[in-house]
Design a protein around this nucleic acid. Structure first.
Lengths: 136, 136
DNA sequence: TTTAAATACTACTAAAAGGTAGAATTAAAA
DNA sequence: TTTTAATTCTACCTTTTAGTAGTATTTAAA
């Protein structure tokens, strides 16, 4: 019941850039600031570039920026990209699909928490990370 | 953001036994009924026996029963046993520990959903799986 | 125009989770 | 007392996730 490392790193990277927007950030800086292994970070950056969260500039003086305004990137978008979300009908116990008429023993209890989680991920954007009182 | 397979299987096994209590269930029956690979199931059963959720009887005509009344085993107990829970201070983004005074950018939004999840796992016992209208 | 500093690509290694194989042990039925 | 059917133990294999290595490509500064 936790996020995978790639998602966690991606969220932290994007929110850090959001918080220091209008600049180009290179992999070395991001890796050192966020304490993410350099080679793993560059791999994630390339994925984020391909999936259009990030625009990269190659060559000397290159680096990364956000591709869109900070309020147009939700946490849900990021998790979706790294295949780390709970789909509405995913059965918590892994017994196929789960809904009102065909449900596992935890289905009813799971409805509310699941909704709240979904809402949280959908309603939180990179904009919500602005401000300096957060760990990075 | 999902449970690991071992936890899922363990919950399904325990709740099935809870629902057919007062009998001895052997590994072959459980494996076939719940569609869990036999060898993996026996491994989980041995763990459940060692951690005192299950009492096993060895030898011919042996099998498994619950070690306690169904209302004394919560889902949280099971998840705890397979190291699959969210601890209160675990940071959702993996930046060490997280609390009111030292928090990540998702901390505040995460408080409510996390509480609901915890409550759900703590308040649901094997007793809640009784009845035949659930997938197994 | 060469060099330096950046991203991107390909391929690999390491660790964790999921799952399997086979033999040892146990205990009741035959 | 032998056989059969059950759990348990030890060791392994497979897949997925996490992370690393090295080289190729790109581009601006020197």
């Amino acid at each position: 019941m936790r996020l995978n490392n790639t998602s966690k790193y991606a969220i932290r990277i994007l929110s850090y850039i959001a918080n220091n927007n209008q600049q180009l950030h290179n992999a070395k800086e991001l890796s050192e600031t966020l304490d993410i292994p350099y080679k793993f970070l560059t791999k994630i950056m390339t994925e984020l570039t391909k999936s259009n969260f990030i625009i990269s500039t190659r060559g000397r003086e290159g680096g990364y920026t956000l591709s869109r305004p900070t309020d147009e990137i939700t946490i849900m978008d990021v998790l979706q990209n790294f295949n780390d979300i709970i789909y509405q009908k995913d059965c918590l116990l892994g017994i196929g699909k789960c809904d009102g008429s065909n449900k596992c023993g935890l289905h009813d209890q799971w409805v509310k928490p699941k909704k709240l989680i979904k809402k949280m991920f959908e309603n939180t954007t990179l904009n919500d990370f602005k401000g300096s009182n957060f760990k990075i």
